[in-house]
Amino acid sequence: MVVYIGFIAIFLFFAVTLYDDGFLTQRNLTNILLQTAPATIMAIGLVFALSAGEIDLSFGSIVAVSALTVAVVLQDYPLIVGVAAGLGVGVAIGALNGVLVAYLKLPSFLVTLATMGLFAGIARSMTDLRSVPVMNETFTGIFGSGKLFSLPSLVIWTAIGVGVGHLVYRQTRFGAHVLATGDNPRAALVTGIKVARIRLYVLMISGFTAGMAGLLYAGRLQAAKYTLGESDLMTVIAAVIVGGTALNGGKGSIIGALLGSLLMGMLNNGLILMNLRVSDQMIVRGLIILLAVAVSLRDSKR
């Protein structure tokens, strides 16, 4: 698959040209893993949604609502309540999207476009645009700066997310039904797959992963803010498409999404280390993503 080649090519390119700038240092490579963790988790949910033939544009807003919910709840309640609340709102918003799409038969593009705006507004009004600090050190350890056996917690969460996501996507009946629903909804229906329920579930999964990403951001920044997740929409969609997931359903890869997300992180990182001007960073990144998406889509058509 293209993403493997692209990933290796860009990695090698930066490894050679930025060797003196510390690209290959353990610290820098760890940074890339930490920085991409929330986007990778979001990408997993998006792979499920796209594979079932739906899109979720609202996950960025869910990230902000979830992060703010955790931060606010943790001010007065213990860890477990905060985590449950953060993930809970993610799943609930996903369920709202899902019910509108699956049972009221509204197009997911329009539903999630609307809920994206709706929850971006709610995130802004939740704390009147204020940032909320997260003081609970157990939380910031588990979801942010902590380590287990010298592995950073964000890396562990990424590994768990990708591992579980891949297994469910490739090795369960649910995963097969998601793919069938996106591939040919009529075929799925006549073979007894509960197509509407699958659509509901994938949007709930996307809400859940966005909620999880919100937790990781809140842990990493030790604070939550309404802007969290806002700029991830395009990055995550690009990562998922570059990773070989079809925009119109029936085909995808969780591992590809991980590599796509790492590719995006590597680009951000490498272009800064190259000391390019900010505008040039954007131009080069845009061109590389364009190339990657084009090659990836051509590849999947054959």
């Binding site: 097969a176 793919l179 069938a180 591939d183 040919n184 029936g250 085909k251």
Partner: peptide, 12 residues
Amino acid sequence: DLALADQQPVFM
């Protein structure tokens, strides 16, 4: 229309 999912393998 056969009701086949085109992008999935035969066995699936």
